[in-house]
């Protein structure tokens, strides 16, 4: 792959839930090592777009490429097979607002689960790699604990380590700090910031505008299923051009949460 080819390429993407058209002709590219913050009011389709990138949601129309794997969708195109979908998803890591750790497994068990059963690594190798990932998020000493004994911030960092253990090319984050107590937000953002500095390609749905401005290099602003405005993070956040973006951001400058 040449340096010019974007890591993620989405074109003419459409998605309907019944009558409701949630994504309308989305075109988006993310460069290798790029960090994109996806902003927009509630219901604008941010989560749906993020879930289309790893095909947790199947688009109705358009193409999606991550690294060297691409899928086309449309009426004339056959739905991809379960197995090829699963293989595609190993290229992307995803972290959810509600952590979704596996409660019946220890922290280490959570992290080694997919490397062993999806990638086929042996337990020893998987454990070594998992411990390295847990080290990175500062939780190596919690490896044998069960998830429900952890704080929200710790859970979310385990979820990040779990996704990273599959060595994805891309990481997707969907409001990963929204369920956290304010004093726990920092530790998770810090882990993400470190990941960005390490050169991971990331798409982040967030309401942490300051974080988006500092860590993301691009901002994509969505409304009603469209990309309304897109550009360098500081430029879009400090001097938005579109009215929708201005209105949305003004809520933050007043210090109120837009949720």
């Amino acid at each position: 792959m040449t340096a010019k080819t974007p890591m993620i390429e989405i074109s003419r993407l459409r998605k309907c839930f019944g009558q409701l058209e949630v994504l309308k002709d989305i075109n988006l590219q993310v460069e290798q090592g790029g960090v994109v913050a996806l902003l927009g009011p509630s219901g604008s389709g941010k989560s749906t777009l993020l879930r289309c990138i790893n095909l947790l949601v199947t688009p109705d129309d358009g193409t999606i490429r991550v690294g060297e794997a691409s899928f086309q969708f449309g009426k004339s195109v056959q739905q991809p097979k379960t197995r090829s979908l699963a293989a595609f998803r190993t290229r992307t890591g995803m972290v959810f607002q509600s952590f979704n750790l596996f409660p019946h497994m220890s922290v280490l068990g959570n992290v080694i689960e997919a490397p062993i059963h999806v990638k086929g690594l042996d337990r020893k190798t998987a454990t070594d790699q998992a411990m390295a990932q847990l080290e990175k998020v500062g939780l190596a000493d919690r490896a044998s604990q069960m998830p429900d004994t952890l704080s929200g911030g710790q859970k979310q960092r385990v979820a990040i380590a779990r996704a990273l253990a599959m060595e994805p090319e891309v990481m997707l984050f969907d409001e990963v700090t929204s369920a956290l107590d304010p004093e726990l937000v920092g530790e998770v953002l810090q882990a993400m910031q470190k990941l960005a500095a390490d050169g991971m390609t990331m798409v982040i749905v967030t309401h942490e505008i300051t974080f988006a401005r500092d860590v993301a290099d691009r901002v994509v602003f969505m409304r009603d299923g469209y990309v309304v405005e897109e550009g360098p993070a500081r430029e879009v956040i400090d001097t938005p051009r579109m009215d929708a973006t201005k209105t949305f951001l003004s809520h933050f400058h007043k210090g109120a949460s837009p949720r």
Binding site: N54, L56, T82, R83, A86, A87, R89, T90, T92, G93, M94, F96, S98, N100, L101, F102, P103, H104, E113, A114, H117, V118, K119, A159, R162, A163, M166
Partner: peptide, 27 residues
């Protein structure tokens, strides 16, 4: 079982059958 569990399993590249066996059924 919370649908988030099978979503997390899918996002890690598990097939539905594997997710059922390793994640959903044990819980």
């Amino acid at each position: 079982i919370d649908p988030g569990q099978s979503e997390a399993a899918s996002a890690l590249g598990m097939t539905p059958a594997l997710a059922m066996r390793r994640i959903i059924l044990p819980q």
